[in-house]
Design a protein around this nucleic acid. Sequence first.
DNA 1: CCAACAATACGGTACAGCTCTGTATTTGAT
DNA 2: ATCAAATACAGAGCTGTACCGTATTGTTGG
Lengths: 202, 202
Amino acid sequence: MSEGTATQRRPGRPRSQEADAAILRAAVDLLVERGAGEASIEQIAQRAGVTRATVYRRFRDKTQLLVQAVEAENGAQSESALTWPNVDRMLDDWAGYLGHSRHRRILRRLYGALDDFPELLAAYHESYGRRRAEGVRDTLHRAREAGHLPADVDIDFLQQLLSGAVLHHLGAYPDTTGADEIREYLATALRQVGYRPAPPGP
Amino acid sequence: MSEGTATQRRPGRPRSQEADAAILRAAVDLLVERGAGEASIEQIAQRAGVTRATVYRRFRDKTQLLVQAVEAENGAQSESALTWPNVDRMLDDWAGYLGHSRHRRILRRLYGALDDFPELLAAYHESYGRRRAEGVRDTLHRAREAGHLPADVDIDFLQQLLSGAVLHHLGAYPDTTGADEIREYLATALRQVGYRPAPPGP
DNA sequence: CCAACAATACGGTACAGCTCTGTATTTGAT
DNA sequence: ATCAAATACAGAGCTGTACCGTATTGTTGG
């Protein structure tokens, strides 16, 4: 059962896995540097040290390539836990993530490509955002039940507010902002909506 | 005094004002449709019913053209008042603005062009956003003093939160969303941060 | 066990077609 | 005379497809 993984071994020379990885990597790099619209297959192939034919053999068009590149990018990342014991740990995680310039730029590019390549943000959401959003929801829910958030707060809406705060931060603060400062920013946002790390005693 | 407006009548054939307007209009249209990066001077000229030379004579490059186009766009719009008697009126105004598909798409494009054409959002901010932000600040400040907002709320940060909520809405809700629903969205956002139209006092 | 073969990937090159840029030149309006 | 407008031109990049020679695998037959 050497072909047990449902992948029927195709005859002929197998595809180079180095090329696979190099292409996807180059695709994300150019997505970050030039944006989805301006990144060309030509450039991606060149950056990956491969000819265009090698790219066209794998991907129908640029959209498919970018979609798989995005999936691969945070597929490698999503191994880290997407659930947190409490809000503070969640903020730590967020701040760590948003403290990396590459992550910030990817997120901006995905949002900026909404009108032209909606599939990209959809792919991100499918492969990462959705599970993550569930973790956020859970964490906020528990915080509310523990009395750290006002009882009448709308968790779903609060989640949207936090997403918005992230978007605003991505656009308004430099990518060199430190993780600690970002953490403070997110904490301030939560404070505005009534989050209190220490429960409001009897 | 036929040249009294400080505009020294230059010799030779004057520039067509129709061309001026058509170019700027076409520039914004294509910015909306294709984004700053993908909109080409070629297309803009064609859309304006003008040759490229006519565009190059007026604008050094695409960036300058788009900057002036953005300025002209909401320069024509900013005649409407940028101060409001109270928060409710402010939300009415916002919802009316964000209820127009064109406005939503322009804002998305400006944000999406942050990495490649930061001058665009800067131009918007200079010609419109800044004064508007001051109006928002004032309105929120008065609301807090009137007791409609918690006394310990951070006005500047609240403003950023609202900007983020708008960004999130632009990305997450369809452009066909009605103004009334958008108004409800914004009101919900304010409610989460403790806004209460009726003062809480005895 | 080894040789020949089929099937496929890869790099390289080429091609036609399209769009865009930037400048130069000509024509035309005031 | 002076400038605007239209036209023309040279150069560049990207797309999508096609072909070649070579490399790498599995299969088949001796």
